[in-house]
């Protein structure tokens, strides 16, 4: 036993919280009232942000980390973990979020990037980070920078699941291929993915990412949540899908149940009845900005 055995901020502790969120729903909320609705519905965590992605998309301009007062209000309103977003590369926003005591930081493409070449050095923090990825190379680069959870990006604020499916299939498909790759091919995978060889070898050995893999971006119905869970996501982030629907409390509950019972079609039918209108969706072809393209 060492002299100072009490250690905070270890990789095990940081990845451990992500393990505890598996099978759950993390909901975007903009104030304490929404946070309570999310917790009442069974959210396993909330993401505090000033505007949900569909409003950020509509309003345009620069989207930044949220007002500390708003984050504090949400922290006080709920007992579940509270996450908040920092801009890509904006390590000062991240330092402030850590000082505020948020439980997870999302270095997020939904906000306007602060650095066009570098992501945050996430090893420098006690608080864990989640980062988005559209493909396995991006996921492994984020993990090498210290991310303790990956979420497939999808296309936030669209209510359209097609990009989330594309990203999940790409990441999980490449993991399946690397599991079959011989040693020489693993070098080539590292080169093609622009990712550290050690992480490629770890995937070959374990057949999984070294950190939990969640799904975000475009989930608007219980069926969407169950779809990405059946494809292999381990939990879901729902942004605009809840509070832009006609009956947020009902939709939130239904998505929580669908995420737990993702393989049970009878339960999915039951929870999907009478939810009212889902959020309005957008076709990818009509988008001016692709948020998923942010990140390097």
């Amino acid at each position: 036993m060492s002299e100072h055995p009490h250690e905070t901020g270890t990789v095990r502790v940081k990845r451990g919280l992500a393990e505890m969120l598996k099978g759950g729903v993390i909901m975007d909320v903009v104030d304490a009232t929404q946070a309570r609705i999310a917790e009442d519905a069974g959210a396993c965590a909330v993401m505090a942000l000033e505007r949900v992605p569909s409003d950020i998309r509509r309003d345009g301009g620069v989207a930044r980390a949220s007002d500390p007062e708003m984050i504090e209000g949400i922290k006080e309103a709920v007992t579940i973990p509270v996450m908040a977003k920092a801009r890509i590369g904006h390590f000062v926003e991240a330092q402030m979020l850590q000082a505020l005591g948020v439980d997870y930081i999302d270095e997020s493409e939904v906000l306007t990037p602060a650095d066009e070449a570098h992501h945050i050095d996430k090893w420098a923090f006690t608080v864990p980070f989640v980062c988005g990825a559209t493909n396995l190379g991006e996921a492994l680069r984020r993990i090498s920078e210290g991310a303790c959870m990956i979420r497939s990006k999808g296309e936030a604020g669209t209510g359209n699941i097609v990009e989330a499916v594309r990203h999940l299939r790409s990441i999980l498909g490449d993991i399946r291929k690397i599991t079959q790759a011989d040693t020489a091919e693993q070098f080539d995978w590292a080169k093609r993915l622009q990712a550290p060889l050690g992480l490629v070898q770890e995937i070959h050995a374990t057949a999984t990412l070294p950190v939990p893999m969640f799904c975000a971006g475009g989930i608007a119905t219980p069926a969407d949540a169950a779809l990405v869970m059946q494809l292999g996501a381990q939990a879901v982030f729902v942004g605009s899908g809840i509070f832009k629907s006609e009956q947020p409390a009902l939709m939130a509950k239904a998505i929580v149940e669908a995420t737990t019972h993702f393989a049970d079609a009878d339960i999915l039918v039951k929870v999907s009845r009478g939810l009212g209108r889902s959020m309005p969706g957008l076709e990818m072809g009509g988008l001016e900005t692709r948020l998923a393209d942010r990140g390097w």
Binding site: G9, V13, P81, G101, D103
Partner: peptide
């Protein structure tokens, strides 16, 4: 949450 928030999460033998 008797020990605080995630930044207070810890390992100890």
């Amino acid at each position: 949450n008797g020990y605080g928030r995630q930044v207070d999460s810890f390992e100890e033998p």
